[in-house]
Amino acid sequence: MKTNIVLIGMPGCGKSTFGKRLSKEIDFSFIDMDVYIETYSSQTIAQLWEVGEDHFRNIETAVCKLLTKENYTIVSSGGGIIKREENIRLLKKTSYIFFIDRPLELIMRDIDVSGRPLLKNDKQTLVGLFEQRIEQYRAAADFIIENDTTPATAVQQMHTFIQHLKLVEKESLSE
Rank of each mutant, 00 (worst) to 15 (best):
T3G: 02
N4D: 14
I5Y: 00
I5M: 01
L7S: 03
G14L: 07
S16G: 06
S16K: 05
T17I: 01
G19P: 01
L22F: 10
K24C: 15
E25G: 00
F28L: 14
S29H: 15
F30S: 09
D32L: 14
D34W: 15
D34F: 12
E38W: 03
S41C: 04
Q43K: 08
Q43F: 06
T44D: 06
I45Y: 15
Q47P: 12
W49N: 10
E50R: 08
D54S: 11
D54F: 10
F56Q: 14
I59V: 09
E60I: 15
E60T: 13
E60C: 08
T61D: 01
C64L: 01
C64I: 02
L67K: 01
T68A: 04
K69R: 09
E70S: 05
N71T: 12
N71A: 10
T73Q: 07
T73E: 08
S77A: 13
G80P: 12
I81A: 15
R84I: 03
N87V: 01
I88K: 11
R89H: 14
R89T: 06
L90I: 08
L90D: 06
L90Y: 12
L90K: 08
L91I: 04
K92T: 10
K92M: 08
K93R: 07
T94Q: 04
T94E: 02
S95M: 09
S95I: 07
S95G: 15
I97D: 07
F98S: 05
F98R: 02
F98Q: 03
D101V: 00
D101K: 05
P103C: 04
L104D: 12
L104Q: 10
E105V: 13
L106M: 07
M108A: 03
D112T: 12
R116A: 05
L118V: 13
L118E: 13
N121D: 05
N121V: 00
L126A: 02
V127F: 09
G128W: 01
L129F: 08
L129R: 12
F130E: 04
E131G: 01
R133H: 12
I134Y: 15
E135S: 10
Y137P: 08
Y137H: 02
Y137L: 05
A139L: 13
A141P: 05
F143W: 05
T149M: 00
T149Q: 00
T150P: 00
P151F: 15
P151K: 05
A152P: 04
T153E: 08
A154R: 02
A154P: 00
Q156H: 12
H159A: 03
Q163D: 07
H164M: 10
V168K: 09
V168W: 03
E171N: 09
E171G: 12
S172L: 08
S174I: 15
